[in-house]
């Protein structure tokens, strides 16, 4: 049981990293990765919202949509639930835990329309995970996102000082360096299977 959960977490952090192998959440990955501090804030906020969103959407799907055979409403329901959940969390944090709101608050509205969050919720349903597995998978995906953000923020600070050809300046060179980071993550393929063999 626990072994299975650890397996899911490790797989989603290293092998099926959401940003670098599944291409979800590219916008914040490229947009908010200029400074390590901001990257960490965004990563933690995304992890937080992913876990919350899974905790809410997973029961909704199985106890509401599936029960009444409304599976085709999945997309609409999920995006609405996530959007209102994020707003709610922001209000609650602002009222009761201002220090946490100060650290994460500015990133929260940006996450509403982040495809990584919706992607995690939808993938947990497609993969047929039960509640605990779904929670483990969303934790893993969040941590994977955080890891990718932190690593890439470090790489980007070096890239900023480099002097590429003119047409490559800015976004193109950032994408090429992301390709190299993704190449490193490709090296993890198969590592989890070996660990648990």
């Amino acid at each position: 049981m626990i072994k299975g959960l650890i397996y899911i977490i490790l797989t989603s952090v290293l092998v099926n990293n959401y940003v670098l192998t599944k291409f979800l959440g590219i916008c914040p990955f490229l947009g908010v990765s200029k400074k390590v501090g901001q990257a960490a804030g965004m990563g933690v906020a995304v992890t937080f919202v992913m876990i919350l969103a899974t905790a809410v959407t997973h029961p909704i799907y199985y106890f509401l949509l599936k029960k009444f055979e409304l599976e085709y409403l999945q997309t609409i329901v999920f995006i609405l639930v996530i959007a209102s959940l994020v707003q709610l969390v922001e209000i609650i944090l602002k009222k009761y835990i201002p220090s946490l709101h100060k650290a994460l608050g500015i990133y929260l509205p940006l996450i509403t329309t982040n495809c990584a969050v919706l992607g995690v919720c939808a993938n947990n349903i497609t993969d047929g995970y039960n509640f605990l597995e779904a929670m483990a998978s969303s934790l893993g995906c969040g941590l994977g996102f955080l890891l990718a953000m932190l690593l890439f923020a470090g790489v980007r600070q070096k890239v900023e000082n480099a002097n590429p050809p003119k047409c490559f300046r800015g976004v193109p060179i950032t994408l090429v360096s992301a390709a190299i980071v993704a190449l490193c993550f490709n090296g993890f393929a198969g590592i989890v299977e070996t660990l648990f063999a």
Binding site: L20, T21, K22, F23, F168, V171, P172, I173, T174, L175, V176, A178, A179, I180, A182, L183, F185, N186
Partner: peptide
């Protein structure tokens, strides 16, 4: 076909 190729081609 893999993910690094995607980033690379897009950048180029």
């Amino acid at each position: 076909q893999n993910s690094p190729g995607g980033f690379f081609v897009f950048g180029c």
